[in-house]
């Protein structure tokens, strides 16, 4: 096998596009951790909920997809708000293990609730987006869309956090929630807004995933662990760190799989993760929102 070939280029490009999906997933999870200091173990299940919202509105109720898709952002945004208000807020000042267990419980609740309502069947919106072909190089438009959305999401979030009043408040609370409380900032309101924003990011991820994956109650098994790993590797709570870690992991998986096998690539990714945790337990990038 040649060291570099045309197919390798295709694998690298696909790795970058896959990284876009992962980066988008990592953004919301990191945002919540960075500000509220809570890990939403059930984050991928919120994405799953968004996918079901789109499926129900579009396929069952017959809404146009362009109308159904934004409702996932609104719906999961509201879910984020409710999750914080009902589950996180009452135990925010208790040991972190309680929050972890509570969101873990939410994970099983959402999985089983979806099974109860929709059954265990695999569902699909049956939409096939065009494929970009450049000579023998094929690029999936749905993945290109995810990549673009991830980049725009990152820029949008950055602008929101750096240029708006509430964004500045969020960053301030992320840096020191106790001091900000003493200075009269309503941290509860900031937490609520942050949770809704993270939910909305999950809704956006749902729109892009529903174009690429089947909708089923257990899709979190495919994306949950890897998203969490990316967030930890990039430095939990560090948006930029998570963004870049997503592309590092996706390239390891893509190139590792290209030269070895799909199974081997995940072994390499997890071994690298363990090594990073030994060398830099705080993640590759210093935690800083």
């Amino acid at each position: 096998m040649a060291l570099f070939d045309f197919f390798l280029l295709e694998a690298i490009i696909n790795g970058i596009l896959f990284g876009g999906v992962l980066a988008l997933l990592a953004l919301g999870l990191n945002l919540v951790f960075g500000v509220v200091d809570v890990i939403w173990i059930a984050y991928a299940e919120l994405v799953m909920s968004g996918m079901y919202i789109i499926y129900t509105l579009h396929i069952t109720w017959g809404w146009p997809l362009l109308l159904a898709a934004p409702m996932a952002i609104v719906g999961v945004g509201l879910m984020g708000l409710v999750v914080h208000r009902l589950i996180i807020a009452p135990i925010l000042d208790t040991p972190p293990i309680n929050q972890l267990l509570a969101t873990g419980g939410l994970l099983f609740f959402l999985q089983n609730f979806a099974t109860l309502i929709f059954g265990a069947d695999f569902r699909n919106i049956g939409l096939s987006l065009p494929i970009l072909q450049i000579f023998e190089l094929y690029i999936s438009f749905s993945r290109l869309l995810s990549f673009g959305a991830a980049v725009l999401g990152m820029i949008g979030l950055y602008l929101f956090l750096s240029r708006t009043y509430i964004g500045t408040a969020i960053r301030a609370v992320a840096q020191d929630r106790e001091i900000m409380s003493l200075m009269g900032v309503n941290t509860k309101k900031v937490y609520l807004i942050t949770s809704a924003l993270a939910g909305a990011m999950a809704g956006l991820a749902a729109i892009l995933l529903v174009l690429q994956q089947d909708v089923h109650p257990f899709i979190g098994f495919s994306f949950g662990p890897i998203t969490f790993m990316i967030c930890v590797m990039g430095g939990l709570g560090n948006l930029i760190g998570g963004f870049f870690a997503a592309f590092i992991i996706s390239q390891i998986i893509s190139i590792g799989s290209f030269y070895g096998s799909t199974e081997l690539s995940y072994v390499i990714a997890f071994v690298l993760f363990i090594i990073v945790m030994f060398i830099r337990p705080q993640g590759i990038f210093k935690r800083n929102t």
Partner: peptide, 17 residues
């Protein structure tokens, strides 16, 4: 010849191979 986990989120590299 290749095996993969059934919950894998991406099979694009295998397809390219």
């Amino acid at each position: 010849e290749e095996g993969y986990s059934l919950t894998t989120p991406d099979l694009s590299s295998m397809v390219i191979k």
